[in-house]
Simulated assay, not measured.
Amino acid sequence: MNVIIISDTHMPRMAKQFPEVLEVELRKADLIIHAGDWKTKQVYEELTQFAPVTGVYGNVDESFFYENFQNKIILDLKSHRIGVTHGHGKGKTTEKRAVDHFQDDEVELILFGHSHIPLHKGYEGKIIFNPGSPTDKRKQSHYSFGKLTLQEGQPIHINHIFFEKK
């Protein structure tokens, strides 16, 4: 299963369309996970043209997302439990807030966004992953998103795809 992970698209303010390198990967996706700050319903509708889409709402999304998505979800994909949240809130770091959302849940992977800072590391037996942003890199050197490959009975394989131009 080929899963593309994105967050913090902030469209159309930060981009009018998806970057070409992202579109290439979206065409091969079996599933797209968005970790919030989509901004407009149009982003969701465009993503559904590539593959099924799931995700969570962020702190700057239109009411459509608050009405149709949750702050936190747990996905069961190919025998792997994956937690998704945006990571916004008060106090602590974005990373710590994301991890705390799933402190009482058995998950192997925690996906989050909000900070626009790509992150991939182990934490207390879990993988925590922020894809960064494909459209708003802020102070990062590159734009980015994530690619997750899942096979039944195999370990999770996840990595960033970095690129310079949107």
Rank of each mutant, 00 (worst) to 15 (best):
N71W: 10
G146W: 08
F112Y: 15
K92N: 13
L31R: 03
G83P: 07
L150G: 04
K90N: 13
E62L: 05
E20W: 11
G55C: 01
I32L: 00
V3L: 02
H120D: 15
L75Y: 06
H160G: 04
N59T: 06
E23K: 15
K121I: 03
F64Y: 15
L47Y: 13
F163M: 12
H160D: 05
T135F: 03
V24E: 15
V60T: 14
K92V: 09
Y66A: 14
S133V: 04
L31N: 02
F18T: 12
H114R: 02
V107N: 13
K16I: 05
F162C: 01
T9A: 04
I4R: 03
S141E: 12
S141R: 09
R81W: 03
I82M: 09
I127V: 07
V107F: 13
L47S: 10
I73P: 00
N71G: 13
V43I: 04
H114G: 00
W38V: 04
N2E: 11
H86S: 03
V3H: 07
T85E: 05
F65A: 06
P155N: 01
L75C: 07
E106W: 11
Q17H: 06
L75D: 12
D100A: 13
E106R: 14
E124N: 15
I82R: 08
E20I: 12
Q103G: 03
G153I: 03
T40Q: 08
T48V: 03
I110T: 13
D8A: 04
T54R: 06
L75H: 08
F50H: 06
G58M: 02
G132W: 14
E108G: 03
I128M: 05
G87D: 08
P12F: 02
S79W: 07
Q103R: 09
E67C: 09
S141D: 13
I32R: 03
